[in-house]
């Protein structure tokens, strides 16, 4: 019997493989169904932690600064992400307000905080308190974080508004763009690798 750590099972077709060390840029694909088994994790734990800190700072900027400002014959109106959530709530679309608050604020924020928490400890090869729960939460929350979609939505809204108003992009739109970039960088990293490179602290 092999050590279970050496084996990996394809999540889409149940094929079993022996894990091997991947070279830089290499991706292990399942030969049966073509799913990605593993990617080479080209960023070390320290680099990932640095990126998470950057993502947190950009996330704060994205949330407090106006995304766009509209002008109409001398009047101006600006909005932040939370402005959009509140507008939907007040205009009778509470379901949409709730969905937006979750997918654009709470889920991305908890992803950043939880990942930062486990990475901070993983820098010394340790498992953070609540490691198992944190790792499970990361897997569960991942599909519900929709920063990239919001970024594209902002662009569509700007183009639509441009027909009738003067549109001035605010710092928030740049922050969201940068955040989209960081999210894309992270999407090639599977947090589950932390199970392999950390050890339970000796009591």
């Amino acid at each position: 019997m092999h050590n279970a750590q050496e084996l990996i099972v394809c999540e889409h077709c149940d094929s079993v493989y022996r894990r091997r060390t991947l070279a830089r840029g290499e991706v292990a694909d399942c030969v049966v169904c073509g799913a990605v088994l593993e990617r080479h994790q080209w960023l070390g734990v320290d680099a990932q932690f640095a990126l998470i800190v950057a993502a947190f700072i950009v996330f704060v900027i994205a949330n407090v600064s106006p995304i766009v400002t509209l002008g109409l014959s001398g009047m101006t109106a600006a909005t932040t992400l939370w402005g959009a959530v509140i507008a939907m709530w007040n205009d009778g679309a509470q379901v949409v307000a709730f969905l937006s608050a979750m997918t654009l604020f709470f889920f991305p924020l908890s992803q950043i905080l939880i990942f930062g928490w486990v990475l901070w400890f993983a820098r010394d090869g340790r498992r953070a308190p609540g490691f198992a729960q944190a790792m499970s939460a990361l897997v569960r929350v991942k599909p519900w974080s929709m920063i990239e979609v919001f970024m594209l939505g902002t662009l569509v809204a700007v183009v639509k508004a441009h027909t009738y108003f003067d549109v001035v992009p605010g710092p928030g739109i740049w922050a969201f763009g940068f955040l989209t970039l960081l999210v894309t960088l992270f999407s090639s990293h599977d947090p589950r690798q932390l199970w392999d490179i950390t050890r339970e602290a000796r009591a």
């Binding site: 009047m75 937006s100 939505g153 508004a161």
Partner: peptide, 27 residues
């Protein structure tokens, strides 16, 4: 999840276009 695009567009426009009686967007 990319289908949420239109939902977010409406959310942003509703928050932005609030010029009293001159011009308004509502969901």
């Amino acid at each position: 999840y990319w289908s949420m695009l239109d939902v977010f567009v409406v959310a942003i426009l509703s928050a932005l276009v609030h010029f009293k009686i001159l011009s308004r967007v509502e969901p």
